Computed example of a mutant assay.
Amino acid sequence: MAIRIKSRWWNENNERSLPEMSGALAYIAWRLAVDKAIHLHCERFIYRDDHQRLAVIQEYLIFFIQVADRLAYRNLDDVARRELIVGIARKLVEHLQDNSEDVFGPGDYGSPFFALLNTRSEEYAEFQLTDDGPSYPFLRHLGFEIQQLMGNAEENRWVIDQVMDQDGFDAYERFAKAFDDLFA
Rank of each mutant, 00 (worst) to 15 (best):
M1R: 13
I3M: 03
K6P: 02
S7C: 06
R8S: 13
W9G: 01
W10V: 06
W10R: 09
E12P: 03
N14Y: 07
R16Y: 00
P19I: 02
E20G: 09
M21L: 13
L25W: 01
A29W: 02
L32E: 00
L32K: 01
V34S: 10
D35G: 06
D35Q: 12
D35R: 13
A37R: 12
L40C: 11
H41D: 10
H41R: 13
C42Y: 10
F45I: 01
I46S: 12
I46G: 04
I46A: 04
Y47S: 02
Y47H: 03
R48A: 11
R48Q: 12
D50N: 09
H51E: 11
Q52I: 05
Q52N: 03
R53K: 14
L54N: 13
A55N: 14
E59S: 13
L61W: 11
I62H: 05
I62W: 05
F63W: 15
F64Q: 06
V67F: 07
A68Y: 01
A72C: 08
A72T: 04
L76T: 01
D77G: 12
D78S: 10
A80D: 14
A80N: 08
R81H: 07
R81Y: 03
R81I: 04
R82P: 03
E83A: 10
I85A: 01
G87R: 00
R90G: 08
R90H: 09
L92H: 02
V93M: 07
V93C: 14
N99G: 08
S100Y: 05
E101K: 07
D102W: 12
V103N: 03
F104Y: 06
P106V: 09
D108P: 00
G110P: 02
G110F: 02
S111N: 11
S111G: 08
F114K: 10
F114S: 10
A115H: 04
N118Y: 09
N118E: 14
R120P: 06
R120Y: 09
E123P: 05
Y124A: 04
A125S: 15
A125E: 13
Q128R: 15
G133H: 07
G133Q: 13
S135A: 15
S135Y: 08
Y136S: 15
Y136R: 14
P137E: 12
F138N: 08
L139C: 09
L142D: 10
G143C: 08
F144T: 04
E145K: 13
E145H: 03
I146M: 11
Q147H: 07
G151Q: 08
A153M: 13
A153L: 07
A153V: 14
N156Y: 10
N156Q: 07
W158K: 14
V159K: 00
Q162E: 15
V163C: 03
F169L: 11
A171G: 15
R174H: 10
K177C: 13
K177Y: 08
F179N: 00
A184C: 11
